[in-house]
Structure formats: structure tokens, C-alpha cells
């Protein structure tokens, strides 16, 4: 190692502790635009329009670690005989736009909880397909804080 490269290595080392948390290897998979997300949503709805509302998505606006964000979905106030067929959850910046797809039915309540990974701060979209053939959507913006002191 030359003196120069050693000095520059130390220069990086003496930076803020938070620099440790940048993960270049994972960062290369963060998608720059939402084209694939729109495509995945189109595939889910078959090109039908999803009206905002009816579905409620609960996810903390500030997530402590992107490895695990609690996600709660609910479709309250459905009319008689109407049930939720599917709920698709899509992300904007993970390597793949699909997050989780839930298949419900007349015997299942439209309330589900799970935990998801978020590669970066981004917008999450949930779309519910009802038994009457309509689609409804909700979005949420999530900020992911980087963990301090990662394994190294």
C-alpha cells in the first residue's frame, strides 16, 4: 500500500461514525425510478384503475431498521357480501417491486399484519382487489434510518 492510499484510507476511517452504515454492495440494487413498480402494479390490476381510499395501510413513517418494518393492512367498511380477493403491496426502490401478495376470501377478514424489508426511504403502495371487481389503493412514505455500528 502506498503512503497516499494509506492516508486516504485513514481519511475515510476518521469520518463520521455513520459512514460505517453505508452499504455500497447493497446500494447498487436500489432502483432509481419507479417504472418496474408501475409495471408490477399494472400486472396486478390487469390495467384497471385503482381508486385511492378504502384500504388503510399502517406502517411507521420512520423505521429504525430497513430489515424489518411492521406493515398492517385493513379494508374497513365493506358492503354486504363484498369481500377482499387480493391485496398486493409494492415498493419503489427495493431490487424487486413486489413486496407481498395476499390472497383472502369471503371467510377471511381483510386485516393482515406482516414485516417487510425496505432497501431505502421510499413510497409503499398497497392495492386491494374486491369481489365486485374494483381496485382501491393506499400509499405511505417511509423514512428508513440507518443503523449505527453495523457488523464489520
Amino acid at each position: 500500500m502506498t503512503a497516499v492510499s494509506r492516508r486516504s484510507a485513514l481519511g475515510i476511517g476518521a469520518g463520521a461514525l455513520a459512514l460505517v452504515t453505508v452499504k455500497p454492495a447493497a446500494a447498487q440494487f436500489v432502483r432509481k425510478d419507479g417504472a418496474a413498480t408501475l409495471e408490477a402494479i399494472r400486472a396486478f390490476t390487469g390495467g384497471k384503475e385503482a381508486a385511492p381510499g378504502k384500504i388503510v395501510m399502517d406502517i411507521p413513517p420512520l423505521v429504525e431498521n430497513g430489515n424489518s418494518a411492521p406493515l398492517k393492512l385493513d379494508v374497513p367498511g365493506l358492503g354486504d357480501g363484498v369481500f377482499v380477493r387480493r391485496i398486493g403491496v409494492f415498493n419503489e426502490k427495493n431490487p424487486l417491486p413486489e413486496t407481498v401478495t395476499l390472497h383472502l376470501g369471503p371467510r377471511t377478514a381483510p386485516r393482515v399484519q406482516t414485516r417487510i424489508r425496505l432497501a431505502d426511504s421510499q413510497t409503499i403502495t398497497a392495492i386491494a382487489e374486491l369481489s365486485d371487481g374494483t381496485f382501491h389503493s393506499a400509499t405511505a412514505d417511509v423514512i428508513v434510518t440507518l443503523a449505527a455500528c453495523v457488523e464489520g
Binding site: S68, N94, L96, T99, V100, T101, R115, R117
Partner: peptide
């Protein structure tokens, strides 16, 4: 039924 992807924790 749930279809999971790499985005599940």
C-alpha cells in the same frame, strides 16, 4: 394465502 418475495423480513 400469501406469496412472499425477498422483501419479506
Amino acid at each position: 394465502r400469501a406469496a412472499l418475495h425477498p422483501a419479506t423480513s
